[in-house]
Amino acid sequence: MNLPIRVGTRASLLARTQSTLVADRIAERLGVEVELVEVTTEGDVNRAPLATLGGAGVFVSALRDALLDGKVDVAVHSLKDLPTGPAAGIALAAVPLREDPRDVLVARDGLTLGELPVGSVVGTGSPRRVAQLHALGLGLEITGIRGNIDTRVGKVTGGELDAVVLARAGLARIDRLDVVTEVIDPIQMLPAPGQGALAVECRSDDTDLVERLREHLEDPFTRAAVDAERAVLATLEAGCSAPVGSLAEVAEGDDGPEVWVRAVTLAPDGGVEIRRSASGPLADAAGVGQRLAAGMLDEGAAALIEPPARRQQA
């Protein structure tokens, strides 16, 4: 009798919901038994701002350790949390069909961004969102916030904050879209690279499982889009907590499907921004992202991405 495939997950409602979606698909399409195994990550126990924890990998490393130690066979992550560099012994086996990647506003009294009065207090723990909110010039007061979705939304319903900005995908997956007061247009706020997508990892030497997951779970258009977005991030040498937004979409071109990617990087106060877009063949999605980011670097993007301490020392 074959042993069940053990799927590693963080313990939060959103993480377990996402992992269950993947586990159910594995069970259905591979015809195997699957069980969830909870793993605690640094990002779950340390409540400091993510930027001070190093950002990239704080929700990922413990799950990857569990994979390499043989405690789980598959790990499910929010793809935007993955560091862009390769991890020894780990394969990104599949990227399933993506949820809507846009950010949303959850505000008191059903308000939109444009309707929030000057001085309204908006909560977000993301430097990317902070910078883009400042760039809109709406006179909002931005404050840091951590916690799960219910905690963040509760700060609005409890009157502590006027609004919070969240990823639409997370709310959709736990069936909480009813709290959304505005879906924010990417023209106003580009999402994080990989936002709305899931990453399904396993050990790279488990070649049979890698191939089966890729065959049955992979969405090639989603993979191309996130490859382009993550190539932007990697070329800029920016972590997942940097003020960088990127969104790629697949559209039909003259010679077949093409990937179109937009990206922005900003000063923390939103006073300076570098914004570019590019398109190219689907098969060269990462190359499109790399070339776009190289152009941003030529315009001075590195100075916007450097941590404040390094900018002060320069």
Rank of each mutant, 00 (worst) to 15 (best):
S126F: 09
D150A: 15
A251E: 12
D284N: 03
G287I: 03
L53P: 08
G253I: 02
V58P: 13
V37K: 09
H134I: 01
D109A: 15
L198N: 02
I149M: 13
T207N: 04
Q132V: 06
E160W: 12
E252C: 03
G287P: 00
D69E: 13
L213M: 02
V130K: 15
R146I: 12
V22T: 07
H216M: 09
E249Y: 01
V250P: 00
R25I: 09
G300T: 00
L63K: 15
R311W: 00
R212C: 01
A15G: 14
T41M: 14
V95H: 03
V72C: 15
T40A: 11
A172G: 08
R64I: 14
I149S: 12
G114E: 10
D65A: 12
G70Q: 13
H216K: 13
E115T: 05
T235E: 14
V32T: 15
G139T: 05
R214L: 03
G170H: 13
L282G: 04
A135V: 10
G245V: 03
G43Y: 11
A62E: 15
D178S: 14
L14C: 14
C202S: 04
S126I: 02
E141C: 12
E211R: 15
L92H: 07
G159Q: 08
E252T: 04
G31H: 10
L63H: 14
A228Q: 01
F221W: 04
L133K: 05
V39L: 07
G154M: 14
A197F: 06
T235N: 05
A56D: 15
L209F: 09
P307T: 01
A51Y: 09
L67R: 08
A169F: 13
A62D: 08
I187F: 14
T151A: 14
A172L: 12
P268A: 01
L161C: 08
Q188V: 02
G271H: 00
M1W: 03
R47S: 14
D269S: 01
A62W: 08
A267S: 14
R262V: 03
L140M: 13
V232A: 08
A263M: 01
G123D: 07
L97W: 09
E99H: 11
R47W: 13
V60N: 15
A163M: 10
A172K: 11
V118C: 04
P83F: 11
F221Q: 11
A314W: 01
P83T: 06
L63P: 07
P220D: 11
G196D: 05
R128N: 12
L116W: 04
F59D: 08
R152Y: 09
Q312H: 01
G245H: 05
D73R: 07
L113Q: 07
L292Y: 02
T52C: 01
V122T: 10
G159P: 10
G114T: 02
V200L: 09
A91F: 08
R108T: 07
C240T: 15
S246L: 06
V244K: 02
G289Q: 03
A263R: 00
A294F: 00
R128A: 10
N46P: 08
I184F: 11
T143N: 11
A293T: 02
A302L: 02
E42R: 15
G144R: 12
R291S: 04
Q290T: 12
V153H: 14
S19Q: 10
I90P: 06
D162C: 05
R223Y: 09
R16G: 02
L266E: 02
G194M: 10
A131N: 10
Q313D: 10
G239A: 00
V153N: 15
V183N: 06
S126Y: 13
G8E: 09
